[in-house]
Design a protein around this nucleic acid. Structure first.
Ligand SMILES: NC(=O)c1ccc[n+]([C@@H]2O[C@H](COP(=O)([O-])OP(=O)(O)OC[C@H]3O[C@@H](n4cnc5c(N)ncnc54)[C@H](O)[C@@H]3O)[C@@H](O)[C@H]2O)c1
Ligand SMILES: NC(=O)c1ccc[n+]([C@@H]2O[C@H](COP(=O)([O-])OP(=O)(O)OC[C@H]3O[C@@H](n4cnc5c(N)ncnc54)[C@H](O)[C@@H]3O)[C@@H](O)[C@H]2O)c1
Lengths: 215, 215
DNA sequence: CCGCCCTTGTGAAAGGTTTCACAAACCAAG
DNA sequence: CTTGGTTTGTGAAACCTTTCACAAGGGCGG
């Protein structure tokens, strides 16, 4: 049980949890590994293996208790609490995030927002006062934000990430298309839209090459 | 040479290309696999293996010609052309995308935008007229968009994706937090911010558990 | 209590990706 | 032309993830 868990396992656990919450809302009491597998495109064996890293949650012959597994997965993923986010860069993507109800609904609350633009500092965006960068360190210490969000231009993203880390966040979500290197064990996830589009570009070109010539 | 190429390889090729373009701009002529590896956190062997799936691009003893490899990777990834995107859902995230210069700069042009909101239809966002959904099929046929972008509420995302597919797009980029299943070989990439945050939540909780108890 | 059906949990096998390590190739200098 | 220093391209090994397949356990009807 429980050694190092792969990213793909954790990803799938989140997807299982999503489905379980839907089932819970629908009043379903038990679910089997194969039902759980379907929406994420996994196999039933994979579901069972993923869960087995953390313990034994099912009843043989019956499946898993929906309520029980929801609680267990929330515990495993750290979602039985809520997390506070500090946003840096209230531009196009930063504003979209501030207005996104889907975050708070899942326990991720943006509690502070920062920018360098004098025209924005002091104004309110979705109920949150935009603060100057100079307040970043004390404000994060004060409000206890655990996750920093980088939504600044690419050129300053690395510096902003380093500053967030110094301010004491435990993890960083980055929207700039640049690979930020983790230091001090603070994990960083980058949402890189251009990379996704280039992946699609590859697949479409590949399909064209296969169909187009010979094949 | 060239069988089925893994997603992670394609991902890294994009990152190599990014660095190569920087080097090109800086006037560098040759680059070694180890220099190329650094920014993406790969190893030099990995760089060479990744490239070897597609051919032999380097000169032993010298490294890779920056210009030559840029051309080769653009060809492989399908980036020696530009791609047309059709956006469905001009809300918070859709508007952010429309205003994002980083897409056009890398050869991804949003050429059509659609919504169901009567108040938005007919108005212009970043120079593009917002069209009613009823025009989706003919408009995509006419302008020849290859990639559909789903930026609608989650509840309608699957239906919108299906409609885009019927309209003839070759790939879909989805921002709704839902796993859409590929049909007809049209690849789908989902950008799921909540999933990324939950991954970070897991890592932070895990770190806490390791530090907190015993360890 | 027994026997049947169902589903889990899990070693073992298969499949895939990354790293290792070295011969082959190239350049420059003498 | 030969030698030495450097870096590629690539099989083989190591490592990691997924799938297979089945014994073990649980519920239920009789
Ligand atoms: N807009 C999008 O849809 C989109 C999509 C994908 C990725 N991105 C990436 O997200 C990042 C932000 O993009 P955007 O479109 O929101 O840009 P934007 O220009 O609209 O916003 C950037 C904000 O960051 C602020 N800023 C600049 N330097 C700063 C600093 N040193 N410290 C703090 N704040 C600073 C600016 O004042 C501005 O408010 C970019 O890296 C971009 O590549 C954007
Ligand atoms: N806002 C964010 O920062 C953010 C972040 C991550 C994910 N998302 C996801 O992106 C999606 C859009 O989010 P948003 O915040 O932009 O929402 P939004 O409500 O601001 O925008 C949604 C848009 O879609 C349009 N729409 C609704 N039904 C439609 C249909 N059937 N066909 C075409 N258009 C339709 C609406 O009129 C609206 O303009 C959601 O699935 C959300 O979960 C948003």
């Amino acid at each position: 049980m429980s050694g190092r868990i792969s990213d793909s396992t954790v990803r799938r656990l989140s997807l299982y949890l999503r489905m379980l919450r839907d089932l819970e809302r629908a009043g379903v009491e038990f679910v089997s590994s194969s039902q759980l597998a379907e929406p994420s495109g996994a196999t039933s064996a994979q579901v069972r293996k993923d869960l087995s890293h953390f313990g034994s949650f099912g009843k043989r012959g019956r499946g898993y208790s929906v309520d029980g597994l929801v609680r267990a997965l929330e515990e495993i993923l750290g979602l039985s609490r809520s997390w506070r986010l500090a946003l840096v860069g209230v531009g196009k993507i930063g504003s979209a995030l501030l207005g996104y109800g889907g975050l708070a609904a899942r326990g991720f609350d943006v509690v502070a927002a920062f920018d360098v633009d004098e025209a924005k500092i002091g104004t309110r965006a979705h109920g949150l006062r935009i603060r100057p960068m100079r307040e970043l360190r004390p404000a994060i210490a004060e409000c206890g934000a655990e996750i920093g969000v980088v939504a600044t231009p690419t050129e300053v993203a690395a510096e902003v990430a380093a500053e967030l880390e110094r301010a004491g966040v435990g993890a960083i979500l980055n929207f700039a298309p640049i690979e930020l290197s983790e230091v001090n064990g603070v994990p960083i996830r980058t949402v890189d839209i251009v990379l996704e589009l280039e992946g699609l570009s590859y697949l479409m070109s590949e399909a064209g090459r296969r169909t187009g010539s010979d094949g």
